[in-house]
Design a protein around this nucleic acid. Structure first.
Lengths: 245, 245
DNA sequence: AATAAATATGTACCTACAACACATTAAAAT
DNA sequence: ATTTTAATGTGTTGTAGGTACATATTTATT
C-alpha cells in the first residue's frame, strides 16, 4: 500500500483515469440450492459471443458505494429475492485474460439458499439451476471458481452448521444425510453419520414424525435456534485459545 | 458478471472513466519471518497524515499487466529481494472507507521468508520487523488483515509443511517446536509435538548433531526435498476423494 | 565425580472414526 | 389378519490420534 499511502485525494483524482484504474472489480456468486436430491447452482446464459451457449455465474461490478458483502447480497437479492442467507467469501480471481473484454478482477462468494423460499423469474432471464456434477464447460474461468467454492463448502460442511438453509424447517436425519451426500459427492454410512451429527449438538428433536413417506417414518429435527442464519464460528486450534495482541 | 458479460470492448472503453472504474485494487502482503524466537511481520511507516506514527503492511496497486500472484511476488521481491518463498492468498478486504484517500479494495496475501537470506534496506525505507504480539494499532484496516492472515497461518501450520522457510536448512526439533509455539501463541508439549511431527513424515534425520548449544546437543533434521518451496497439498475430505464433474 | 539441563523415548487414557450387525417399526402386499 | 418389505434406530469392535504425564540418557558445567 505504500504508493497508495502517499496519495492525497487530489493526486488520486489526477491518476484516476490512468491505467491503474482501468481494472474493474466484480463479485461472482456461486449460489447453491438443493433440489431433487441434487446440489445445484444458479447460472445465467452468457450472451458474450466468445462464450455462446455457455453459462456463467451470477455477478456484477462492485459499485463505489457498496462494500464486498453488500454487493454479493445485492446480486443475491436481485436474482433470488432473498437476502437472509448464508454467504461467505472464498477467493479473488485475477488472471489477466480471464475476461475477454478487459481486465476484471473478481471476488468469489458462495451462498446456500432454500429453493422453496424464493421466486425466480427463471423464464425471463435465462436463469437456470444446474446440477453441479453435470456442469462441463462454463464461460470465463467460472468452472474454476465453481470448483474452488464447492471445495470450500465441502471443507466446511462437517465442521459448521451452515447447510440448514437448504432444508425445510423440519427435517429427518435421512434428508440431512442425503443433502450431505449431494454436497460431498459420495455416500456416507448411515450409522456413523447420525453419530457424528448427534455429537455436534446442532439439532433439537421436536418429537414429531414424518408423515408423507411410504415407509416407516423417521423422527423430525430442527436446527437449534442459536445456529440459525449465519452460524460460522471459528474452531479453536488444538483446543486452546490463540492470542494475537 | 451479467453486466460485464454484456460489455463489448468498445463499451468497456466508454464507461472506463466512470464511477465503476474509480475503484483501485491493491495487494497487501503479510510477510512473516522468525527471528529471536518471535514471529515478526515486515511493516513500513505510514506517511499518510491520518496515520501518523502508525505502521502498515507492504502493498501496492495491481498493475494492468500482472495477475494477483505476480503483484504479490513483485512486492516481496522489491522489499526483501526474495521471490522463492511460500505465498498464499487469504482474503479480499473492501470496506468503503478503509482507505482515507479513495476507494481501494485490497487482496491480502501472507508469506513466510527466512530473514537470513534477504537484504533489507531497513535503514532507508522505514521498514521494520515487528513482533506480531507487540502490535497494537496499525494504519488502515491492516490490523484486521494481519489477524486474519495470522489465523490462516495458524490453521494451516499443523497440516501442511509450510513453515520450513523460516528455519535454517538444518534444524533441531527444539528449534522447530519453538517456531510452532511462536506461530500458535501457546506452548506445546515436547513429547507430543515430536510424535505429531514424526507421524507427518516431513523430515529426514541427517545424522548430525547440534554443536553450538550449551547443553546436550540434539539431532539435526532437514525437510524432505519433495516438500521444499511451495508444498501445499489439499487434504482429502473424510479420507475419500471428492468429485465435481 | 557430582550436578544441572536438555534430549530421547514410552505408557495410559480418552476420543474420534470406520466398518459392520441386529432389532424395531410402519406401510404395503398377500 | 398375517406376512413381507424397507426403512428407522441403536449397538459393538478395532484402529488411529490426541493429551497428559514419567523416566532414562546424554552432554556441559560445577
Amino acid at each position: 500500500m505504500e504508493k497508495t499511502l502517499r496519495l492525497k485525494t487530489a493526486e488520486i483524482e489526477k491518476i484516476s483515469h490512468l491505467d491503474y484504474f482501468n481494472i474493474a472489480i466484480s463479485v461472482d456468486c456461486v449460489i447453491f440450492c438443493y433440489h431433487e436430491k441434487k446440489l445445484k447452482v444458479l447460472l445465467i446464459k452468457s450472451d458474450l459471443e466468445e462464450f455462446e451457449g455457455l453459462y456463467s455465474l451470477l455477478g456484477d461490478l462492485i459499485r463505489p458505494d457498496e462494500d464486498l458483502e453488500t454487493a454479493s447480497y445485492r446480486i443475491l437479492k436481485d436474482r433470488t429475492g432473498m437476502d437472509d442467507v448464508y454467504l461467505e467469501q472464498v477467493q479473488a480471481f485475477g488472471s489477466i485474460n480471464r475476461h475477454p473484454s478487459g481486465r476484471v478482477i473478481t471476488i468469489a462468494y458462495y451462498s446456500l439458499i432454500d429453493i422453496k423460499h424464493h421466486k425466480l423469474q427463471l423464464s425471463h432471464h435465462d436463469l437456470h439451476w444446474q446440477p453441479v456434477n453435470e456442469i462441463k464447460k462454463m464461460a470465463f474461468d467460472h468452472k474454476l471458481i465453481l470448483e474452488t467454492c464447492l471445495a470450500r463448502l465441502q471443507q466446511q460442511v462437517m465442521d459448521y452448521p451452515i447447510v440448514f438453509n437448504l432444508l425445510p424447517e423440519k427435517f429427518s436425519l435421512r434428508q440431512l444425510q442425503e443433502l450431505y451426500e449431494a454436497i460431498l459427492g459420495f455416500e456416507l454410512d448411515r450409522r456413523n453419520f447420525r453419530k457424528k451429527i448427534s455429537i455436534k449438538d446442532w439439532l433439537v428433536d421436536i418429537e414429531e414424525m414424518e408423515n408423507d413417506v411410504p415407509h416407516r417414518p423417521g423422527k423430525l429435527y430442527k436446527l437449534k435456534p442459536e445456529f440459525k442464519k449465519k452460524g460460522l464460528k471459528k474452531k479453536s486450534i488444538s483446543g486452546k485459545q490463540q492470542a494475537v495482541s
